[in-house]
Structure formats: C-alpha cells, structure tokens
Simulated scan of single mutants.
Amino acid sequence: MCSPADYLYHYYEKSRGPFANLSDLSEAQADEVLESIRKQNEVMASRRDQGYLVRRRELEGLARELFLLKGGKPVRKAPHYMVVGPCDWLSDWYKESAFVQIPISQFKLDTLSFSYGDLFPTFSPRVNDGKEYRRQIYTYQEILELIQKYGLPQEWNRDGSYGPERYIEVQVWDDGPLGRTVEA
C-alpha cells in the first residue's frame, strides 16, 4: 500500500529544467537571474520581493543547522526543494509547468529534512498561530508522524484559506538521487 510520503515531487518551469537552484549561484548571479525572471513577469517567482534572496539564504542556513542537530547528514550547503506528494497548486506557479517525481526509497533519509509548509511562512515572525509545526525542521520519521496527525496540507488547505501551509516542503541535501528522475 502506498503512503502519501512514498514519492517526492519537484515542480519547475519546463524551459528552465528541474533543480535549477538560485542558491547554487553567487549572490550577484542569483540577483541577475531573479531580476530577469521579474522582468519577464510570467511565473510566480517574478513576484519575489527584493529581500527574498537574503532571507532564503538565512532560512537555508537555519534549516541546515537544525537538521544537523537532529543527526542529519547534509552533503550540499544549500538544499534543493521538493514536496511530499503531488500538489496541483504548485503547477500554477509556472507558465509551462512540469514536474519530476522520485520515490523516497531513492534517497538516503538522513539527507532529507522537512518543514510542514514552506520554509518562509514556517519560520516567519509574522505567523504566530501557535501550531506545533511552526519554526520546526523534521526528519523523515517525524514528518510521517505529522502526516498521520494532520494529513497533507495540499489536501486540507487546497485554496490556502486555513493558513499558509499548502504542502510539506522537503529540503534535499544531496544531489545523488536527483539524476534518477521520472519526468511527467
């Protein structure tokens, strides 16, 4: 029987390809790419504010630090991003959306961390609703427990009316399994 956490998904703009990661670029290169995306104004990333890249790097550092404290073994300095299970809402972020799905069995579990929702609202000082999964990074076993307790956000919060969590974000700290993708 399949579990909701059996497959990880990565959504992307088809013309750019999967796993194109701003965090792998220098600050200047990342600024240039993001500015180009803003000028094209065709995808969700064009709406990122000017402080986005700085905050992203802060959150990636925090996620890595918290993951290490839980025994995680990140290989990369900054993660690639995936989500647990399919999430139709993410397809709307792109002009020509595509995704890859990878069985979780392809990953070393100690190279995956999870947040119940996107890192940005999960660690936002403006989100103070007291939910237990705020400001937390989880291991695979821990996220399975949260899924058992709450379900997948993309199922109970399809339109975002119940809060900022719309999916479970996976921070992928190893490039190895990303070459074995099934494109859809």
Rank of each mutant, 00 (worst) to 15 (best):
N41L: 03
E42D: 10
E42V: 09
V43R: 14
V43S: 15
S46N: 05
S46K: 03
R48F: 15
R48Q: 15
D49R: 11
D49I: 02
D49W: 08
Y52C: 12
L53H: 07
V54R: 14
V54Y: 13
R56E: 15
R56M: 15
R57L: 06
E58D: 08
L59H: 06
E60I: 02
E60K: 01
E60D: 08
E60C: 02
G61V: 06
A63E: 04
R64V: 04
E65Q: 14
F67I: 04
L68N: 07
L69D: 12
L69S: 14
K70T: 13
K70N: 07
G72E: 04
K73Q: 12
P74N: 07
P74V: 11
P74S: 08
P74L: 03
V75N: 12
R76F: 08
R76P: 05
A78C: 14
P79G: 05
Y81D: 06
M82R: 02
V84M: 01
G85P: 03
G85F: 04
D88T: 10
D92S: 15
W93H: 10
Y94A: 04
E96Y: 04
E96F: 08
S97G: 11
A98Y: 01
A98W: 01
V100D: 09
V100R: 05
Q101A: 10
P103T: 00
S105W: 01
Q106H: 14
K108D: 15
K108R: 13
L109P: 04
S113T: 00
S113P: 00
S113W: 00
F114T: 02
S115Y: 10
Y116E: 03
D118M: 03
L119A: 12
L119I: 13
L119H: 13
F120L: 10
F120R: 04
P121F: 08
T122R: 00
S124Q: 06
P125S: 11
P125T: 14
P125I: 08
V127G: 11
V127S: 10
K131Y: 12
K131D: 09
K131H: 07
K131Q: 13
R134Y: 09
R135E: 09
R135N: 13
Q136V: 14
Q136D: 14
I137R: 03
I137M: 04
Y138W: 11
Y138I: 14
Y140K: 10
Q141F: 05
E142K: 05
I143K: 06
L144F: 08
I147C: 02
K149D: 12
K149Y: 13
Y150N: 13
Y150M: 06
Y150E: 10
G151A: 07
G151D: 02
P153E: 00
P153R: 00
Q154S: 15
E155C: 12
W156T: 06
N157T: 08
R158Q: 13
D159N: 13
S161R: 12
S161M: 07
G163M: 04
P164R: 00
R166V: 07
I168W: 03
I168Q: 04
E169G: 01
V170Q: 05
V170T: 12
V170C: 01
